[in-house]
Each structure stands twice: as structure tokens, then as C-alpha cells.
């Protein structure tokens, strides 16, 4: 099936097979089953969940080939300047409805909490509001995001030994993949 938004036969629901680079941010929180208590969410977690967590997953893990995994991985992007800027310039991050201040909090939560590398990473400085405001004013809307991300990830892996798991996303879209085929988990 060709990725895209269509209409399902017989009902008014559209099919959205590839929300591909919906990379916003961070997420949150532990979902509890009924009867085990309910997590109390912080404003940053609420912002992540309502802006990003539907696709990226409540805990930053979703369908890894269709939506980039955030958990334990996103923090690796701060290793290079290109990677650091890439995260904020992603269209669904840069063009989100969050304010500069809240977006900054969400991004820092994603890279230092949700996406902190399991093995630990090099110390990086948090995003500042001014930095996020500057970066989001230059969204990556004129670039093929998947090839661009491949280059960013290759740089992270060559210079910082970033995890191979960063390459899982988009693998089905890369060279040798069958065009139009939706990756499945």
C-alpha cells in the first residue's frame, strides 16, 4: 500500500500509514493499567504526550521502522552540532504549536531524560530558549528528511560511536528498499 492519507472503504477514517518523520519530542510517562493507580503528569510530560507521544509512543518507543525511537537514543544527537540543530529544525518540532519556552523544556526533557543514552553520553549543555527560537525559525522543509537524517546519523556514528539502533528508522526506505512499501514491525 502506498503510504499516504486516503479514505478507508465504508467509513470516514483516513489511513495514515507513514507519519514518517514526526519527530517531536519526548515523552513521558508511564501508563498504568486500570486499577493500579494513575500517573500524575507534569506540564512538560503533558506537552510531550499531546504534541509528540501519540506517534513516538508514551514511553518513546513506537513502531521503530516507521517512527524513530526516542527512548535511550535521542540524546545521542547532541554529540554533534549538526545533530543538535537537526532535532529542533525537524518540521513537526519547529512548527509545533508549543511556545519557545515550553518547546525548550520538552526538548531538554526528551534528550536528557527520555532519550538519555543507556550507556551514558558526553556531557552536553541543555537547549536554551534563545537557541530553540533561532533553530525553529529555520525548519527543514526544503530537504528530503530521510536522506538528511541518514547523513546526520552517519556523522554521529563515525564521530561519537552512536548506537546502530539509530539506523533502524528509515531502513525500509533506504537504497534497495521497495518504493512505496510500508515497513512493518
Amino acid at each position: 500500500m502506498t503510504p499516504g492519507i486516503g479514505r478507508a472503504a465504508g467509513r470516514g477514517r483516513a489511513l495514515l500509514p507513514a507519519l514518517a518523520l514526526v519527530l517531536c519530542g519526548p515523552a513521558v510517562c508511564a501508563a498504568h493499567g486500570p486499577g493500579t493507580g494513575v500517573s500524575r503528569l507534569t506540564p512538560v510530560q503533558v506537552a510531550y504526550l499531546t504534541s509528540c507521544g501519540g506517534c513516538h509512543g508514551v514511553e518513546g518507543v513506537s513502531a521503530p521502522q516507521a517512527v524513530p525511537t526516542l527512548r535511550h537514543l535521542t540524546g545521542s544527537f547532541l554529540c554533534t552540532r549538526q545533530g543538535r540543530e537537526f532535532l529542533v529544525r525537524l518540521p513537526d518540532v519547529a512548527l509545533s504549536s508549543l511556545s519557545n519556552r515550553m518547546l525548550t523544556k520538552v526538548m531538554n526533557w526528551v534528550v536528557f531524560d527520555l532519550g538519555a543514552p543507556a550507556a551514558g553520553g558526553r556531557a552536553a549543555r541543555p537547549y536554551t530558549v534563545a537557541e530553540v527560537a533561532r533553530l525553529r525559525s529555520e525548519p527543514l522543509t526544503q530537504t528530503g528528511l530521510t536522506p538528511y537524517r541518514d547523513r546526520v546519523v552517519a556523522g554521529l556514528q563515525a564521530r561519537c560511536g552512536a548506537p546502530a539502533a539509530l539506523s533502524v528508522y528509515g531502513a525500509a526506505y533506504g537504497p534497495g528498499a521497495t518504493p512505496g512499501v510500508q515497513p512493518t514491525s
Binding site: 478507508a8 477514517r13 489511513l15 500509514p17 507513514a18 503528569l41
Partner: peptide, 25 residues
């Protein structure tokens, strides 16, 4: 809410919808 969220699964065929409690906002 019109989007069918069946991507990342083995089938795109829609069956039904759940409303999973995530947390207190």
C-alpha cells in the same frame, strides 16, 4: 480522530478503537 493508526502493525485493516488511560493531566 479520523486517522487509522494501524501503521507499525502487521495489517492496516481497522477493526475497532480503544481509549487507553495515560495519566492525570
Amino acid at each position: 480522530n479520523h486517522v487509522i493508526w494501524c501503521f507499525g502493525t502487521n495489517s492496516f485493516e481497522y477493526h475497532c478503537s480503544m481509549a487507553v488511560l495515560v495519566g492525570l493531566a
